[in-house]
């Protein structure tokens, strides 16, 4: 079943006479139970799409439905089925993570027993038990963000919107959150999230979409996105090569102490021998999702 269906979605903002097109004829279908990520540069339209889908914002034109309910004309029906972590959302100052999660569940109509039980569970799963009774203003930014995400995930709403959920979290915390998100999805929730961490998108998503300038550029799995680059291997060289020597083999990125080359499998042997001859250290691996994303979006920027 389709959990979300957006058709011809457009949104323009009038910024003091200057019309900004945040979404432009955007189409997307997300199936029930999917873990779906939306990627894009800053200002590409990710948050605008999430806001429209979560009934926070009206589109200029187009249609959007969640589980068959029209999110534009019948938001009440949709709101009963959703929960959202807003981008850069912040907690109330005087509340503890335990109170926050429990009270939010109670506000949404959960029974006392359910609220208490789920609060304990989510705090434990998110590594927040030790901070459960600490007032928010005494918590670090990452812990506050974790509490906010815990509050939304604890709802186990049929459709969860997470706008950059792991922003500001350390790598350990991010992995804990990923695990909780996976669990929630296993229990039947559909999850739509945005992120700038491409490893996160790869780890979590069943499918992903790339938005650029309000338009859908790509939709599919991370493997498919990597395949679109056309260069499947990633070679990293320590100092020794000049970028222009490698550019004939593929796309070259210059790092502080290294060069990265995205190239085809057929070039690996030749380049390995060349590196060995010159005594240059080299690593070989698959193209990362981040590189595929840079290639895809970069190409579009160059074209325009």
């Amino acid at each position: 079943m389709e959990a979300l269906e957006a058709r011809g979605l457009s949104k323009t903002f009038d910024q003091r006479g200057h019309i900004v097109r945040a979404l432009d004829d955007f189409n997307l279908i997300i199936h029930e139970g999917q873990l779906f990520s939306v990627l894009g540069r800053n200002g590409a339209g990710k948050t605008t799409f999430l806001k429209i889908a979560s009934t926070l914002l009206l589109p200029t034109s187009g249609t959007l439905s969640l589980f068959g309910h029209d999110a534009i004309s019948a938001p009440k029906e949709v709101r009963a089925l959703i929960a959202m972590v807003p981008q850069e959302g912040k907690l109330f100052y005087h509340i503890t993570p335990r109170e926050l999660v429990r009270e939010y569940l109670r506000i949404r109509g959960a029974s006392r027993e359910t609220a208490v039980c789920r609060t304990d569970e989510v705090l434990e799963a998110m590594g927040l038990t030790a901070y459960g009774n600490t007032v928010a203003f005494q918590l670090s930014g990452g812990l506050r963000q974790r509490a906010l995400v815990a509050m939304i995930l604890a709802t186990r709403a049929p459709f969860l919107f997470l706008d950059e959920p792991t922003l500001g979290m350390d790598p350990f915390a991010r992995r804990q959150v990923w695990e909780v998100i996976r669990n929630v999805a296993r229990q039947g929730s559909t999850v739509l999230f945005t992120t700038h961490y491409l490893d996160e998108a790869e780890e979590l998503s069943d499918e992903l979409a790339v938005i650029e300038r309000g338009r859908l550029m790509f939709r599919g799995s991370s493997e498919t996105l990597r395949a679109t680059v056309g260069r499947e291997v990633r070679l990293q060289f320590s100092t020794g090569f000049k970028p222009e020597e490698l550019s004939a083999y593929g796309k070259v990125y210059t790092g502080r102490n290294h060069l990265t080359l995205l190239t085809s499998r057929s070039s690996v042997r030749e380049l390995t021998e060349l590196a060995l001859t010159r005594g240059i250290e080299m690593t070989v691996g698959p193209v990362t999702l981040e590189e595929a994303f840079l290639e895809l979006v970069g190409k579009r920027i160059e074209e325009e």
């Binding site: 009934t55 709101r79 959302g89």
Partner: peptide, 18 residues
């Protein structure tokens, strides 16, 4: 506007009156 917290209630079964 600053804490983005009203949005947490908008995207939920909570009605404006509540």
């Amino acid at each position: 506007l600053e804490r983005q917290f009203q949005q947490v209630f908008v995207a939920s079964p909570v009605r404006p009156i509540a």
